[in-house]
Design a protein around this nucleic acid. Structure first.
Lengths: 348, 348
DNA sequence: GATTAGCACTCTCTCAACGGGAGTGCTAAC
DNA sequence: GTTAGCACTCCCGTTGAGAGAGTGCTAATC
């Protein structure tokens, strides 16, 4: 079964192709094994059930479909899905109406990274009709653009960091001594030009040789920047669990399992290494998944952002019996949209 | 059934009380109707099953318990739960070990409102073992403390608002003309002292009579402040859906219903008007719920914050058959904790 | 030679029947 | 007032029959 991960090379006839296509479509829609008779009834293939049966038997021999029980209908194998995705599905593009609508919705949202990530997750879940997951983009290494100090109480200040990539972070800062807004502004005005454009490590080297407050502030600037270096767990959003609760595959306990996958980070850490930086969508079906925990699922993922600068990951997770057309077109479009948004933010 | 919302006044004997208590506890734990025999087997009541049966018949007459089917075990009624909560449960307090642990965890989290709200939701879900919901605190009316302008691109700036209550909001600002950081800082320095302490409406009146950029900036300060006036939809967090997925009450489709309640805001808008500002936890059981949509659930809610200044709501939602002890103690403690955190922020 | 009609067969799914188990109310004895 | 015993009720898991859908095979047809 290991060599199943390679692309199928078998030649099958045009009629077999169209039958396979119908089986996949029908099974995805109904969730029940597909028989020869239902096929002739529901679609107008030009041939009789008997002919379909012969072709089905052949398709089964080649490993594209499978019988769950003797004399039950056929169900696509992972292999069959893969063939469908590669050769029969066509090029999945979201209807341009949907594209415009989504882009418009994003204009309504407050221009802020957090919001985008969360919103992307919910839009993706809805258009794909499955569970979605989106990580906040991660810069290779965060560099400071600006920071501000705002006095909240005599010994408590708000520190606001802005990176080159316009990621923003706020932190409370308990000060060692009493300072008012004027003093704090002076501290910021002095420090900012000296550390602009530097990474956390570079700033850390310069801490010595400044006053007590300044050292204190710098120290927290460094920790704050460090936090922006790596993917933050709270910055991974998922959405759309309700979409799979109805599916027969996920009766009760299995939905819990999916939540585990999403929340525990299993999905991400499993998929991450397999995600080549090739700029298109990647599809993992059943057995092909890089982790055993995902063997029963279909996963469609893409990275977004600007190569070498900021990159994030987004994608969907569903039963192997999912609409790959919807999923792929949705993921592809969302990745493109998020990349565009990053471009807007980053191009200085 | 409407008068059921009032507190039960019936006098029942001490033995009936302890039997009712056992029925509630056993039913909450097992989920199956409780019979006289199981009770004597599992707990050592000093009497025989027959006696228990007599007492149960009496309890049923009084409306505390109910038989779902003839000759099935007994199940508490909403009335019975209410009596249990009021008279039999004792005073629910989280074990002090848990209290310390939770408070400690909050120290680890970044000091930021968003984070607190999200974290509170997840902690509450876990300790209560149900679905939780937490709203961000809302100020009666937001008043500006400070704002900053940070240049991102020649015509794009980041506007950071800080309210008196230390709520922070960032917004992207497309500028009508080109400005650099120095110019923007000057704008901020000029405006801040003139509008400090004012609400959005008060600032709106002063817009005329300033330069083009200033008017532009002020306009956005006003919209930004307005956003902080009201509860933001994205600022309502819930957590713990996985906790109810396993329960027999929520096989499949019903879990979707709960998600609807949480996300659509039905829960909040139903419970909000009924939440008197009395500072303790409020419990709605089944029929007592202010909205029909919640009739099958138990809801435990409390408001937190500082009266008249900042208030938010938090609570849990579960099947009527839920552990009210756990829920109430968790909600009570979290409300207290969040209030303390608000106090720290607000006391200037 | 490919296609199709017909047929016997297999397997799942639904539904009714059934018996064990748990619980009840009642009566009579303690 | 409490309890043992008993007849009765109802749920629930199992079983078995029949309907429905699907299959493979063979023989006839285009």
């Amino acid at each position: 079964m290991a060599e199943m991960t390679s692309m199928p090379r078998e030649r099958i006839t045009a009629r077999q192709q169209s039958i396979l296509k119908l089986i996949v479509q029908e099974y995805v829609a109904s969730g029940r094994p597909v028989g020869s008779k239902t096929l002739t009834e529901r679609y107008n293939v030009g041939v009789s059930p008997a002919t379909i049966r012969n072709e089905m038997a052949e398709l089964e021999l080649l490993g594209f479909v499978q019988q769950l029980h003797t004399s039950g209908g056929r169900v696509p194998t992972d292999h069959g899905y893969r063939y469908f995705v590669h050769h029969l599905m066509g090029s999945p593009e979201l209807p341009s109406g949907d594209q415009i609508m989504i882009r418009h919705q994003f204009r309504q949202v407050e221009v802020q990274l957090d919001q985008w990530v969360e919103f992307a997750a919910s839009v993706l879940a809805e258009t794909a009709g499955t569970v979605s997951i989106v990580t906040a983009p991660r810069t290779v290494v965060a560099r400071l653009r600006h920071f501000e100090l705002i006095s909240l109480q005599p010994q408590l200040a708000l520190l606001i960091l802005v990176t080159q990539e316009s990621a923003v972070r706020q932190m409370m800062l308990h000060l060692p001594t009493v300072h008012d807004q004027v003093q704090l502004s002076r501290v910021a005005d002095t420090l900012v030009p000296r550390i602009r454009g530097l990474s956390s490590d570079e700033i850390a080297e310069r801490i010595p040789g400044t006053s007590e407050v300044m050292a204190w502030v710098l120290e927290h600037v460094v920790t704050g920047l460090r936090g922006l270096d790596s993917v933050d767990r709270t910055q991974v959003r998922h959405s759309g669990i309700e979409n799979i609760l109805g599916e027969p595959e996920f009766a009760g306990a299995d939905a819990q399992y999916v939540l585990e996958l999403l929340r525990g980070g299993t999905l991400l850490s499993a998929v991450l290494p397999a995600l080549t930086s090739g700029d298109d969508v990647q599809v993992f079906i059943g057995d092909e998944n890089p982790a055993d925990a995902l063997r029963r699922f279909g996963v469609v993922m893409a990275s977004y952002g600007i190569d070498g600068e900021v990159t994030g990951i987004l994608g969907v997770l569903g039963p192997t019996r999912m609409s790959y057309w919807r999923s792929i077109s949705s993921v592809r479009y969302m990745a493109r949209l998020m990349s565009d948004l990053m471009e807007d933010l980053y191009s200085a």
